[in-house]
């Protein structure tokens, strides 16, 4: 492993250990994506030979790619950690879905609202998340230990100063801290580390022929028969892969022939668009991520 990846790894392990040492009841968000895979790998390294002393939490909107769910169950079993899965069943019963609801309202109910329900139910005081500062402008401003008020709200103007490698996780009952061990990693670092450490990832990251339709200039995969096709529309098979993974109707694929990690690394380094470009939920308005984060989104 090259020098700077080794130091990123050492820093992340230090952060994860601090988080666990300072928390009463920690939990790690597990979204099944490449960043979660790296974060989980770092957590297992941090506490080896013991398994990480906290459970994994997945917020399942029921609209994830099928492959993701199968992968999740396998990895959780291998890690020896407890896996908690939460779905906002009330909203599902009300008929909320990613097609007839706009992405903003859908995300609020199925992800942000669901997340708050799960965190409240588990009374978790510290939540490890895989967000990185290079993903988006408001994330670039967030602390590694990020304070949340009792309603899970983030106030960007009231962030605690964070100096050196010293973290302040002290809170009142009901408040919480979100901790981002991958804050200083970039997308290219993540891929290089996956390659160096041979970390398993969902096959959707590799290019393969997949059924897709063209929507608003982007390729959307038809992952199951819940996908409402327009009159006369038929999915076509294209060789595509995903740079990020989320709810399949809201995650665009890119045309690519990268079938190995080395090819993905090469493609990432040459990329001219950001990975979140394929996330339809980010484009609602200029400050959309900042607003979602204030409301409690990761």
């Amino acid at each position: 492993m090259s020098g700077y990846l080794a130091s990123l790894e050492a820093e992340s392990i230090e952060i994860i250990r601090e988080a666990v040492a300072l928390a009463q009841k920690p939990v790690m968000m597990y979204s099944i994506g490449k960043d979660s895979s790296v974060m989980l790998h770092l957590a297992r390294k941090a506490f080896w030979p013991a398994p990480p002393p906290f459970p994994l939490l997945h917020i399942d909107t029921t609209w994830k790619f099928r492959e993701m769910i199968a992968f999740r169950n396998r990895i959780a079993a291998e890690s020896g950690m407890k896996l908690l899965v939460h779905t906002n069943h009330q909203r599902i019963a009300e008929g909320v879905n990613p097609f007839t609801y706009d992405s903003d309202r859908y995300t609020t109910m199925m992800k942000t609202e669901a997340l708050k329900q799960a965190l409240d139910a588990g009374a978790f005081d510290l939540i490890l998340g895989g967000a990185r500062r290079d993903e988006e402008k408001s994330r670039a401003k967030e602390r590694i230990f990020s304070f949340r008020s009792a309603g899970h709200r983030w106030d960007p103007k009231l962030q605690r100063p964070e100096l050196w490698n010293i973290y302040n996780a002290r809170i009142q009952p009901g408040e919480s801290v979100r901790v981002f061990p991958l804050s200083n990693w970039t997308e290219a670092d993540i891929w290089q580390y996956i390659a160096d450490e041979n970390i398993p990832i969902v096959q959707l990251y590799y290019a393969a022929p997949r059924p897709v339709v063209r929507r608003s200039g982007q390729w959307i995969m038809v992952d199951d028969d819940r996908f409402p096709l327009n009159p006369g529309e038929t999915p076509e098979i294209r060789v595509v892969r995903f740079r990020t993974l989320g709810c399949y109707p809201l995650t665009a694929a890119v045309e690519s022939t990268a079938t190995t990690i080395a090819e993905i690394v090469q493609e990432t380094q040459a990329a001219r668009t950001s990975e979140r470009q394929g996330r339809l939920i980010d484009h609602d308005q200029a400050a959309s991520m900042e607003k979602k984060k204030q409301e409690g989104y990761f």
């Binding site: 290079d134 670039a140 401003k141 290219a188 400050a287």
Partner: peptide, 28 residues
């Protein structure tokens, strides 16, 4: 590109520390 918070863009000032990443063939 770097003033990430809405209040910063509106007032054209930097309020909070932002971390940015770039690399050249020599260094990260």
């Amino acid at each position: 590109l770097v003033d990430g918070l809405q209040a910063e863009r509106e007032q054209s000032i930097t309020i909070d520390v932002a971390y940015r990443f770039f690399a050249t063939p020599q260094r990260r």
